[in-house]
Amino acid sequence: MTVPQRLTERKREAILQAAIAEFRSSGFEVTSMDRIAATAGVSKRTVYNHFPSKEALFAEILNRLWSSISAEQDTVYCPEKPLREQLRVLLQVKLRMLADENLLDLARIAIAATIHSPERAQDMVGRMGEREEGLTVWIRQAHADGRLKPMDPAFAAQQVHGLIKIFAFWPQISMGQPSLTEAEQAQVIESALDMFLACYQR
């Protein structure tokens, strides 16, 4: 029972890796399940046994993309530590993630695939919002502790993400600019911290 299960898992992983490669090279619209099966070295039927459609396969790849964003959720608010120090750690994790070429490749695929499909775009934005909940939770806890002024935590978190992504995500995605150097990351982080704390810290 164990061996067939392992074989099934290996085939599933091979299909996912093949799909990522094909989506990267050809985009979502052009990539076919036949090409994915050929690249994975499995039959088309095997592909459909694991994923009922190309959309379902793409959704699983998106799940992997969003799961790589969830590291920031490991940071828990600490009443004893300075706000700036805690936020700096959160943003450092975020910027390291945004510098990952694999993630940027998958993000390009996802964005390109959503251009012609509002449904996919809505799903993508929804998933991204869920994965960025970690910062919202941290802000909500800091506010409840009386250390931040009244505000909408989700809105404030979105502001911070915007301050980061305007330098460390959208230029790389849309214009092919290189990822930020460590010095540039530090500059973006400290500037974002200045703006956030000047606005919201009590």
Results as ranks from 00 to 15, higher is better:
Pro171Gln: 07
Asp123Tyr: 08
His143Arg: 12
Val160Gly: 06
Ala142Met: 02
Phe167His: 14
Arg140Gly: 00
Gly126Ser: 06
Met124Tyr: 15
Ala121Ile: 04
Glu133Phe: 01
Leu135Val: 05
Leu95Phe: 12
Pro82Lys: 06
Gly146Trp: 02
Asp105Trp: 04
Ile109Cys: 10
Gln172Val: 09
Val76Met: 10
Lys81Ala: 15
Ser68Pro: 01
Pro79Trp: 06
Val137His: 08
Ala168Asp: 03
Pro118Asn: 11
Ala157His: 13
Pro171Asp: 08
Arg131Phe: 00
Leu135Asp: 05
Leu104Asn: 05
Glu101His: 08
Leu87Arg: 12
Ile111Cys: 07
Phe167Gln: 08
Ala142Ser: 08
Leu83Cys: 09
Glu85Ala: 11
Pro79Tyr: 07
Met151His: 13
Val76Arg: 12
Met124Ile: 06
Leu163Gln: 13
Lys165Phe: 00
Val93Thr: 15
Met128Gln: 03
Lys165Ala: 11
Arg64Gln: 13
Leu90Asn: 11
Gln159Gly: 08
Ala142Phe: 03
Gln159Met: 15
Gly129Thr: 08
Gly146Ala: 01
Gln141Tyr: 06
Asp123Leu: 07
Ala113Trp: 10
Leu83His: 12
Ala157Glu: 11
Ala71Gly: 10
Met128Asn: 00
Leu62Met: 10
Lys94Met: 12
Asp105Phe: 02
Trp66Thr: 07
Met97His: 09
Ala154Leu: 06
Leu87Ile: 12
Leu65Ala: 05
Leu87Gln: 12
Glu132Arg: 07
Glu72Met: 15
Gln158Val: 02
Lys94Gly: 02
Tyr77Leu: 06
Asp145Phe: 08
Ala71Cys: 07
Ile69Val: 11
Leu148Gln: 05
Leu163Ser: 09
Leu95Asn: 12
Gln122Val: 08
Lys165Ile: 00
Leu104Phe: 01
Lys81Gly: 00
Arg64Thr: 06
Ala157Ser: 15
Val76Ala: 10
Leu91His: 04
Glu72Val: 14
